[in-house]
Each structure stands twice: as structure tokens, then as C-alpha cells.
Design a protein around this nucleic acid. Structure first.
Lengths: 142, 142
DNA sequence: TCTTGACCTCAAGTCGACTTGAAGTAGAAC
DNA sequence: GTTCTACTTCAAGTCGACTTGAGGTCAAGA
């Protein structure tokens, strides 16, 4: 018996069972059957969940992730999509880096009030003019 | 007459008027008065809005940002909070960097299927084991 | 056989940051 | 004086990813 019970999948994947049901409803994963009421899963679901988790941290939505699987369940990852996302990450990384540097500067800045610190003001102007972007979408806390 | 009409503030700050009202309701900004029904603002509100935008891109919630102003409206930025956030950004940057590299690798990877690519598998394992973190909170699209 | 407890379904709720819609109002142009 | 229109208020809706709650079911252990 190589099938996994939902509780075991939940435990091994580190997500609540409710999330597994939710993913199934969304078509992201599938159970192989039931034992009584309980969903049973093929161990391969763990890999799939890992793929989903990966996609999420890369900033893909669940709907986008759903498109990364063929109807047969094989991952179908568009290389173009990956490079696009890599570039997006690059931009975000540069932004965050600049922001981090400025935060550190502001923290160490000797100016009595932040508004008098030129570095801080530059940051502010950048933020005001949209030079710093807000991310598209975020994941709620676990 | 140095006061700005809400429409002008909205235009100059690049946010809809509804956002200004919302921020006012949250106590993040204040109007100096009304002309008829219309809110009038001190030009200083633009700086304040920039500060808010900055805080948002750094990942602070509106509630956290509200705490960054004294009841008198002066920015009161805790230097400790800034360094903490800088460190948080640092961690996130490192994660995203690793993710970006892996995405690029996967995109260029000659393995016929991603699941057969060792780099991709390593990424997957990291994601599965929670080695890659999901951000706390995200900002919806504009 | 009976009880237990972990699962089940389905609808509704949550969270953050806003947006949208209906119904009203006032300054300004005509 | 009338109309236009951009504002006003307040409640409700939206979006994504789940979680929660009520009421039900069933395999396994005592």
C-alpha cells in the first residue's frame, strides 16, 4: 500500500489538510481515491506540492501555477515564463537592495530628523515618483 | 492660497482620491479644511504620502506606518525598526536571488524534463522543506 | 456493538488595502 | 436662477489564498 492518507501528506508537505482540499478543488492536485471518506494520495503529490510551493515563492498565482501542468498532470513549464519571472525577480531584487541600503543609512544617519537627511530625501522622492515599485501580489501569513 | 485641492493632491501623488479619503479615515493623513465639501490639503501632505509609499514598498502595513508618526504628525521613525526591516529585506533578497538563479538555470537546462534536472530538483527540495520563505503580506495590483 | 475521532461537505468568514455605487451637495459657469 | 460636475458620505464589494464552523460519516479500537 503505497498510498498516502491526507493527514500524512499534510504532515509531510507541511500544509494543513484544508489547503490540500482547497488545492484539489482548484484542480492543482488530485487524490487517487478514498478510503471510506478519506482522500488517498499518490506519493507523487508531494513533488507536485513542492512545485506549487516553489511557484508561489517565485510569485506565481495559483491560477498561473495551474497552467504549468498539462491536463495529464505532467509539469509543463514554459522556459520563457521562467526567464520572464527571473527578470522580474531581478528588478525586484535591485529595488529591495536600494531600499535596504537606504533604510540602513537612515538608521545610522546623524541628521536630527530623517526629513533633513539628504539620502532619506532622495529615497522619498524616488518613492513619490514611483521609482520604487510595489509588488503585484502577496501571500498572507501562515 | 497655498492649499491643495484633493484632486491636485491625488494627481501629484499619483493616487486616486478614494485612497486619500481612505488614508484620512485611517488617520494616516489629515486635511486642513474644506472648501465647500472638498478637502483641502497642506502641501506637506505630499511628503507624507511619499513617506507612506516608501513604507509600503519596504513592506510595512498601513497600521505600522501609522505608528511612524507622532500624534502631532511629525515622522517618528524608530531606527531599530529600520535596521530590523533592512535585515528582513536582506533575507528576502538572498532568497529571491537564489530563486532567480535557479529559474534561469531551469530555463536554460538541457534536461528534457525539468524534473530530471538536478538543479531544479534541489530547488524543489528547498521549497518543499520550507527553505524558501513566502513573504508575509502583499500589495494588491493598482 | 458501540464509541471515538479524524476525516468529510458546503457555506461563510478573514485579512489588507482599497474600490465601487448610490444618493446627496455645493462652487462655478452660464 | 439653473445646471453641471466634481466632489461628499456610507455601506458594501473585490481579490487571493485559505480557514473556520456546523453538521455529518465511517474505519478502527475497546
Amino acid at each position: 500500500m503505497t498510498e498516502l492518507d491526507i493527514a500524512e501528506v499534510a504532515q509531510r508537505a507541511g500544509v494543513p489538510a484544508s489547503t490540500l482540499r482547497f488545492y484539489e478543488e482548484k484542480g492543482l492536485i488530485a487524490s487517487t481515491g478514498r478510503r471510506g471518506l478519506r482522500r488517498q494520495y499518490d506519493p507523487g503529490v508531494l513533488e507536485r506540492l513542492a512545485l506549487i510551493a516553489l511557484g508561489r515563492t517565485a510569485g506565481f498565482s495559483l491560477d498561473e501555477i495551474a497552467l504549468m501542468f498539462t491536463p495529464e498532470g505532467e509539469p509543463r513549464i514554459d522556459r520563457r515564463m521562467l526567464t520572464d519571472k527571473a527578470e522580474e525577480l531581478d528588478r525586484r531584487i535591485r529595488e529591495l537592495g536600494a531600499l535596504r541600503d537606504s533604510l540602513r543609512h537612515a538608521a545610522a544617519c546623524p541628521a536630527p530628523r530623517h526629513l533633513e537627511c539628504p539620502t532619506f530625501r532622495r529615497l522619498l522622492d524616488a518613492a513619490a515618483s514611483g521609482g520604487v515599485t510595489t509588488p503585484r501580489r502577496r501571500v498572507p501569513p501562515r
